[in-house]
């Protein structure tokens, strides 16, 4: 029953899918005005999953610390809004620019230090990096230390704030998607895959592996930094451990969504984020008090029984059907 639908979808040209999706996304907040904030968070999840997959899926470097760029973004924008003395939208714009810039610089610095570390050592090093950042932020008075930072009030009428940030987040997710779509179509995309499959070989074939890895991480960092700046404003409050550098929520969700959708594909992380977010929003409220237990169980189940993800599962299914028909 599902196969005809999938076949139909597969034959649809990608531009048509993109146009339809774009129109739906633009109309969604007006069709479902009660869900604007949840929908904005959906785009945040899409950014999370996509940017994680740049390293995790395309380059084969599984990072547990990407949340650090998000956290830097949260704080950079908030500090600019607090200290610049500029009108709201000027401060916000400059803040987002600063977020992107600082995230970029952080990615270059951490990339130089960490991207030579391979395999599970890299995964654990990045895990440590993310948590260390949260702990340091929780002790730094300039950014509010453990009590976090509140963001300025949005200067519009009631409800306009949600709508405004919905569209900003949508724009970030869309630009991120299109950038990665372009990137994976260049020789740079192939080079990332080559490093994933055999890094020593890639180096022995003359690829500039260090530069490629660092630039790839920097690209995801920029989008995470921007998303952080916007997310802080959507929430209205930044807590160092539970929002900005939250390894136990955002940091894990990124990995989970990308795997759920299918690592190493363009659409997989997008689909994974949508499925995860909708499931989460539908069932989370029923799991009061058990949400994090459920998250842990979900990780274990997906990793054990569905590591290929939705895209991988679809590819297997198609292959099996092609084999059956032949």
């Amino acid at each position: 029953m599902i196969d005809p639908v999938l076949d139909r979808l597969r034959k649809t040209p990608e531009w048509l899918v993109l146009v339809v999706l774009g129109l739906v996304s633009l109309a969604a907040p007006f069709i479902m005005p009660g869900l604007v904030t949840q929908l904005a968070f959906l785009w945040l999840m899409v950014v999370f999953a996509q940017t994680w997959d740049v390293l995790g899926g395309q380059l084969g470097y599984n990072s547990f610390g990407n949340v650090i760029f998000f956290g830097i973004g949260c704080y950079a924008t908030a500090v600019m809004q607090r200290d610049s003395g500029l009108p709201y939208f000027d401060a916000l714009t400059l803040g987002l620019l600063l977020s992107a810039l600082l995230a970029l610089v952080a990615a270059l610095v951490f990339g130089a230090a960490l991207l030579g570390i391979r395999g599970h050592y890299f995964a654990i090093a990045t895990l440590g990096l993310g948590i260390a950042a949260g702990e340091l932020a929780a002790g730094w008075d300039y950014i509010g230390a453990g009590s976090g930072m509140s963001l300025p009030l949005f200067p519009g009428e009631l409800g306009s704030r949600e709508l405004f940030f919905y569209f900003v987040m949508l724009a970030i997710a869309a630009v991120c998607f299109l950038t990665l779509r372009w990137l994976y179509g260049t020789r740079f995309g192939l080079a990332m895959n080559a490093i994933r499959d055999d890094e020593d070989k890639a180096e022995a074939m003359g690829l500039h592996t260090t530069a490629i890895k660092t630039v790839a991480w920097a690209i995801s960092a920029v989008f995470l930094g921007l998303a952080g700046g916007v997310a802080g404003n959507m929430l209205g409050f930044i807590d160092p451990r539970d929002v900005a550098f939250s390894g136990a929520t955002f940091g894990v969700w990124m990995v989970l969504m990308a795997i759920l959708g299918g690592k190493g594909t363009l659409w997989g992380p997008v689909i994974g984020a949508i499925v995860f977010h909708i499931t989460k929003e539908l069932f989370w409220t029923y799991l009061l008090g058990w949400q994090r237990v459920a998250l842990g169980v979900l990780i274990v189940l997906i990793v054990l029984f569905f590591p290929q993800g939705i895209m991988g599962w679809l590819a297997d299914r198609r292959r099996a059907r092609a084999g059956g028909a032949a």
Partner: peptide, 11 residues
């Protein structure tokens, strides 16, 4: 790593 990480959240 991911599976034992998931377990750690559960416990």
């Amino acid at each position: 790593i991911l599976a034992t990480f998931g377990l750690s959240i559960v416990i």
